[in-house]
């Protein structure tokens, strides 16, 4: 179990992640959505103990009761080997181009799990089968450049699963992939989490992929978690004005006929995301919010329980 309690990551006066409080239990499939600069990647990196050296980290992070706040690199390495693994957007740059992918996957099995070379090779083959690699025996001997993007992403997933992590963090795992492959990798991650009882943190700006892969969702803006709850509920009936704006701005794949010769415009969120250092001390969304109140820019809204789901917004207080 991963518990974040008021975890903040900042660079001088710029706060990339502000007092994130979150619990990730075995088998949870949690989606994290938000735009560039929302802090979603920083949240993922913090769970790996990989926040940049220049960052000041405050608050608490515990993993299965073990205090990881301020833990040294050796502790994090032990944790990363056995409890948490991460996959990234670009599968080509994450693989060593000079090594056969089977060897890349077998390495951590020998190093962290103490398997013999033959045992590690056999286990790598099992993993390739588990991630649905076509013709797995032959693929083990291939180099990354001989594989398609979807196959390379499967290699990385196999590598991430090698030491049976309790939590798999996937940061934009499908963004670089074509539509068909995107669906298959999304479904694969959800299936693996369920079969293994492994927690999945699925970080993406692709709301369609998050809707498919996750059961819970956290929406981030300007370093804050502004809303969280069951994925279908949040996507169907968003409570926070930012979530509403984000969902509204997403183009609809349904046909959009012209009316009186004019094409209907997309709803937009006015303005642009401010630089991290220029964010309001109160609600980060103030200045762009359509329902903003006088104190929004100065007073930070509390996370409010709206019956099984949560949103941090002053406009929801008193009656809503």
């Amino acid at each position: 179990m991963f518990e974040l309690d008021q975890l903040s990551v900042s660079f001088g006066t710029a706060t990339a992640l502000r007092e994130a409080t979150l619990t990730i239990r075995p088998g949870d499939r949690l989606g994290v959505v938000g735009e560039s600069g929302s802090g979603k990647t920083m949240l993922g990196l913090s769970l790996m103990g990989m926040a940049p050296d220049a960052a000041q980290v405050t608050g608490r992070l515990t993993v299965d009761g073990q205090e990881m706040t301020g833990a040294g690199e050796a502790d994090w390495q032990r944790l990363r080997a056995r409890k948490v693994a991460m996959i990234f957007q670009e599968p080509m740059s994450a693989l060593n181009p000079l090594r056969r992918v089977g060897d890349t996957v077998a390495d951590p099995l020998r190093i962290h799990m103490g398997l013999s070379a033959a045992e590690a090779d056999a286990r790598a083959l099992d993993l390739f089968r588990e991630v649905g690699m076509p013709d797995p025996e032959a693929r083990l001997r291939q180099f990354p450049h001989e594989m398609s993007g979807g196959q390379r992403q499967r290699v990385l997933i196999a590598l991430a699963l090698a030491c049976d992590p309790a939590l798999l963090i996937a940061d934009e795992p499908t963004t670089a992939l074509d539509a068909n492959i995107r669906l298959r990798i999304t479904d694969l991650l959800a299936r693996l989490a369920d079969q293994r009882g492994m927690a999945l943190l699925f970080i993406s700006h692709d709301l369609a992929a998050v809707a498919r892969a996750t059961t819970e969702i956290a929406v981030m803006y300007g370093g804050d978690i502004v809303e969280r709850g069951a994925t279908p509920a949040v996507l169907k009936d968003p409570a926070h004005p930012y979530t509403r704006g984000l969902l509204g701005a997403r183009p609809d794949p349904a046909p959009q006929p012209r009316r009186n010769g004019k094409r209907p415009r997309l709803p937009t969120i006015p303005g642009t995301v401010p630089a991290l250092g220029d964010l309001a001390p109160g609600c980060r969304f103030s200045g762009r919010c359509p329902v903003e109140l006088a104190h929004c820019a100065t007073v930070r809204p509390e996370m409010r329980d709206l019956g099984g789901r949560f949103a941090a917004c002053h406009a929801l207080e008193g009656g809503a």
Binding site: L207, A249, L266, T268
Partner: peptide
């Protein structure tokens, strides 16, 4: 582009077309 910026640019292209 991010979703919210993408919507702004798509609208701009539609405006320019009109």
């Amino acid at each position: 582009l991010d979703v919210s910026v993408q919507a702004q640019i798509l609208n701009l292209l539609m405006d320019l077309q009109d």
